[in-house]
Design a protein around this nucleic acid. Structure first.
Length: 544
RNA sequence: GCCCCGGUAGCUCAGCUGGAUAGAGCGCCGGCCUUCUAAGCCGGAUGUCGCAGGUUCGAGUCCUGCCCGGGGCGCCA
């Protein structure tokens, strides 16, 4: 990758480079191939398919190419290698030495919470916009999924080495705010809630609260403003208990006040992309891949939501970000093409704008769709879910599946305080290691300079270290694919491997050298789990 | 009609951008605590990877067509 290797990328990076160098030496021009973890233990610790990729380019059988690579690899890897062999259709299977594993564990433990960090190929300035729920109601369970995803993605991108900002876009202007005020007014006086208004019982609660604090004679605009203020305070509180901290809050009203919408439209008009038709003002989004052109200013003179959002995204671009990620619900996917068209219209590359489309979340209780609220016009509130199953389970369950898949959260399972519950399973592994260190006392790793006896590396120990070494790749993958759920899968795999290690490998009192070596593996495990749970926004308790 | 997402074990889902005999959890059955946390571990089985073609040494993964489910296609936000 570059001249100064990142120590947090671990020894697998060096392995990959050795393979690339070996193939480059024998057959220049062949692209470097992958380093994989084979599916079965007898296939070794790592395998590569270089020979199979190179064979058609060279015009030789894959197994022959593989065989000729062996000396080059043996020379480069030396003691790291026990043996290397050609297998199957032309794989090269690498069996690493005990010393290599011991050294790898040392390295991971030495890097601690930094292991796997800064692995991004190039550093970018990223803005992640998520939640952005209208301040006309409390956050819902769906918002909970958005928040878990957006925040975790931001944490992962940051850890991978990017500069990340988290932003909440507040729709605090426009017709829905007026409607909100009118709805509160209606609930205060007992009138019918206006057409398309806010029917939830929380609006009535809000009305009572406002009346108590500000009196009864307020006009709708004031009611709307006060209502938004109160709702926003609630949203902020819910975000805080969900462990989400935004770096910035963008306000639609502020954009309007600054004339940003007019400026954005003028900018686009200057680029010859705006035209008038049937009394409305249109943007030629169809020139940039959208199905049809879109209205910016309605015939009645009012700007559309789209126009305001264009101004907002123009503002994001002007703030100098390389990458804008919007986290949106599945019902907004039709919006993506036109927004990207606007981004391109401003002269930014299409890849600057990315959207993560979130599928829905259902709560399931005993196999049936759970209703978390029986109140009129109300919906599943995130606060109720947090009260029920806690923050850790909420965030973890939201991140167990791909964001592109609808999820059912099994409330019974999420409430369970046993290993059946995946979040406790992972947390317990962390607590167990911590307990191990409490038992081991203050005998630090630095006191042991005696090496572990040759032949002491158990299968379970080897498997655990191999698993921990996946960290840099797992981080890179989760970051580049914008998939936090890979992290939740990975942390459970580490937990499972640790539990097996714990069963098979006595640590405290294992004997001179060996106890030290196993404490090193344990420390590496503890720090890796803490890192990964941290990326999910889940606590890593020292005791359970 | 067009666009997006999904279809993998009884259920909920992973599957590392094309690799070796497709995995995990839940649920079901059975076993394991006088030593570092049993919130743990071990064993037991079930698959037309929605269907049909295609690409190639090799396809759950890529391409085409179709079927089913969900969502979206506004001068709403």
């Amino acid at each position: 990758m570059n001249a100064t290797p990142n120590p947090n990328a671990g020894p697998t990076a060096a392995l990959r480079e050795a393979i690339a160098a070996a193939i480059a030496e024998l057959h220049p021009g062949v692209p470097a191939a992958g380093l994989e973890r084979p599916p079965r233990p007898e296939f070794g610790d790592y395998s590569t398919n270089v020979a199979m990729l190179a064979a058609p380019l060279i015009g030789e059988p894959p197994r022959d190419v593989a065989a000729r690579l062996i000396p080059a690899l043996e020379q480069r890897l030396g003691d790291s290698l026990d043996r290397i062999e050609v297998a199957g259709p032309g794989f090269l299977n690498l069996h690493m030495s005990e010393g290599w594993f011991r050294a790898a564990a040392e390295l991971i433990a030495d890097r601690g919470r930094r292991f796997g960090s800064d692995v991004a190929e190039r550093r970018s300035r990223v803005l992640v916009e998520f939640v952005s729920a209208n301040p006309t109601g409390p956050l819902t369970v769906a918002s909970g999924r958005h928040l878990a995803y957006g925040d975790s993605l931001a944490r992962i991108l940051e850890f991978a080495g990017h500069e990340v900002s988290r932003e909440y876009y507040l729709n605090d202007a426009g017709s829905q705010i007026e409607l909100f005020g009118a709805s509160i007014a209606a609930r205060m006086t007992g009138d019918e809630v206006p057409e398309g208004g806010y029917e939830g019982d929380y609006v009535a609660d809000l009305g009572r609260q406002v009346a108590a604090e500000h009196g009864e004679d307020l006009d709708r605009a004031e009611l709307g403003r006060i209502g938004v203020e109160l709702m926003l305070a609630g949203i902020r509180a819910t975000l805080e208990r969900s462990r989400v901290e935004f770096d910035s809050w963008a306000s639609e009203r502020s954009l309007h006040d600054a004339g940003a919408t007019e400026k954005a439209i003028a900018d686009l008009r200057g680029r010859g992309l705006v035209y008038d038709h049937e009394g409305a003002v249109w943007l030629r989004t169809s020139e940039f891949g959208d199905d049809k052109d879109r209205v910016l200013i309605r015939a009645d003179g009012a700007p559309t939501y789209f126009a305001a959002d264009i101004a907002y995204h123009r503002d994001k671009l002007e703030r100098g970000f390389d990458l804008l990620i919007d986290v949106l619900g599945a019902d907004h996917h039709g919006y993506v093409d036109r927004m990207r068209a606007a981004i391109v219209a401003f002269g930014a590359p299409a890849e600057t704008f990315e959207v993560s489309i979130m599928q829905m979340v259902n709560l399931v209780e005993a196999g049936e769709r759970a209703r978390m609220s029986k109140r009129r016009g109300d919906f599943a509130r995130l606060d109720d879910l947090l009260d029920d199953i806690g923050v850790d389970a909420t965030r973890f369950f939201m991140l167990m599946r791909s964001h592109e898949t609808p999820i059912d959260i099994d409330l019974g399972l999420a409430r369970t305080h046993s290993s059946d519950n995946p979040v406790y399973y992972a947390q317990y592994a962390h607590a167990r290691v911590c307990s191990l260190f409490r038992t081991a006392g203050e005998r630090g790793r630095e006191t042991g300079d005696e090496p572990a006896p040759e032949g002491s590396l158990e299968q379970a120990e080897r498997a655990l270290i191999g698993r921990l070494l996946e960290m840099p790749d797992q981080i890179r993958r989760a970051a580049t694919r914008r998939e936090p759920h890979g992290i939740s899968t990975y942390v459970r795999e580490i937990a499972a491997d640790f539990h097996a290690f714990y069963r098979d490998c006595r640590v405290v009192g294992a004997g001179p050298g060996l106890e030290q070596a196993r404490l090193t593996v344990s420390a590496a495990t503890r720090d890796s789990i803490a890192t990964l749970l941290g990326l999910l926004g889940v606590e890593a308790p020292e005791e359970m």
